[in-house]
C-alpha cells in the first residue's frame, strides 16, 4: 500500500472538517474522493501534503508516518500536490514555474528529462514556455500546475479539482492526460466535484459527506450504485442512462 489514512480527523478550530476517515491507495492506482462542496475532500488532500495537521489519526506513505511532515518536506517523500484553483506562479514564465516544481532536485540530466516528459504530455506548454503563467487560459494553467507537479518526479500526485472551471473540451483533454499518467504508472488521488469524470477515470472511489466516508468501493460499482447515480451523476435511477458516465 502506497498511502494509507487511518481514522484521520481534521479540525478547523473547533469544527471538524474531516471525521475519522480511512483511505488506502495502492501503487499505480487512481483513487478518487467525490462529494459535494464542503464535504472535506480538499481538506483531506491538504492534510496529506502537510498544509493541515490532522488532530488525530495517522497518515502513512510507503510505510512511513508523514502526518507531522511540513509541506515543504513533502516533495522529498515523492508527493506532489496540484492545488485547487491551479495556483501557478502568475508572474513567472511557464519554464520558471516548471523549474520551481523541480526545486529540490539537483540532478541536471533528470530535470532535463522532466521538462521533456512534461512537454510531451503538454505540447501547448512548450509553445508557451516563455509566456507569463498568469496570462495562460484556465486549461493551460491547469496543465502547467500538473506539469509543475510532474517536475518533482512524484510517486503520488494529489489533484484537487482539476476540471474546475474548464470548458468541456478542456475537461476531456485533462482527463486524457490523467489517464496517460495512470498508464505510465503514476499513482493519483483525484478530488472532484465532477463525479462522472472522476468515476470514469478512477479504479476506486470514496464518497464523502460532511467529513465522513459514506460509501466506498471500485469505481465501476459506484457508477452503478443507484444512490450515486441519483445524487452525484444526476441520472434518474431507472438505469436507462447506463454507460453514459464512461464518456467523460
Amino acid at each position: 500500500m502506497l498511502l494509507a489514512l487511518k481514522d484521520v480527523w481534521v479540525h478547523y478550530r473547533k469544527v471538524a472538517a474531516v471525521r475519522g476517515i480511512s483511505i488506502s491507495v495502492e501503487e499505480g492506482e487512481i483513487v478518487t474522493l467525490i462529494g459535494a462542496n464542503g464535504a472535506g475532500k480538499s481538506t483531506t488532500l491538504r492534510t496529506i501534503s502537510g498544509l493541515k495537521r490532522p488532530s488525530s489519526g495517522a497518515i502513512e506513505f510507503a510505510g512511513e508516518r508523514i502526518d507531522t511532515v511540513a509541506p515543504d518536506q513533502i516533495t522529498k517523500f515523492g508527493i506532489a500536490h496540484v492545488p485547487e484553483g491551479r495556483h501557478v506562479f502568475p508572474y513567472m514564465s511557464v519554464v520558471e514555474n516548471l523549474e520551481i516544481g523541480a526545486y529540490l532536485r539537483t540532478d541536471k540530466a533528470a530535470i532535463d528529462k522532466g521538462y521533456e516528459e512534461v512537454f510531451e504530455h503538454f505540447p501547448r506548454l512548450r509553445e508557451r514556455r516563455k509566456q507569463q503563467a498568469g496570462t495562460l487560459s484556465g486549461g493551460e494553467q491547469q496543465m502547467l500546475a500538473m506539469g509543475r507537479a510532474l517536475m518533482s518526479d512524484p510517486k503520488l500526485i494529489l489533484m484537487d479539482e482539476p476540471s474546475l472551471g474548464l470548458s468541456p473540451i478542456m475537461c476531456r483533454e485533462i482527463a486524457k492526460i490523467i489517464r496517460d499518467l495512470h498508464q505510465l504508472g503514476r499513482t493519483i488521488v483525484l478530488v472532484e466535484q465532477n463525479a462522472r469524470l472522476a468515476l470514469a477515470l478512477a479504479q476506486k472511489g470514496y464518497v464523502l459527506e460532511t467529513g465522513s466516508i459514506v460509501l466506498d468501493g471500485p469505481a465501476q460499482e459506484l457508477r452503478q450504485n443507484d444512490e450515486i447515480k441519483h445524487t452525484y451523476l444526476g441520472i434518474a435511477s431507472t438505469g436507462e442512462a447506463d454507460g453514459k458516465s464512461d464518456n467523460a
Binding site: L51, I74, T75, F89, I100, Y103, R148, S152
Partner: peptide, 22 residues
C-alpha cells in the same frame, strides 16, 4: 534558482512551500 524561489514565494507562499521551498 534561489532568487526565483524568492519570487515564487512572494507570489504564492503556500504553493511555493508545496514545491519544497522553505
Amino acid at each position: 534558482k534561489l532568487g526565483k524561489a524568492l519570487r515564487a514565494c512572494a507570489q504564492d507562499p503556500e504553493t511555493a512551500s508545496l514545491q519544497g521551498i522553505k
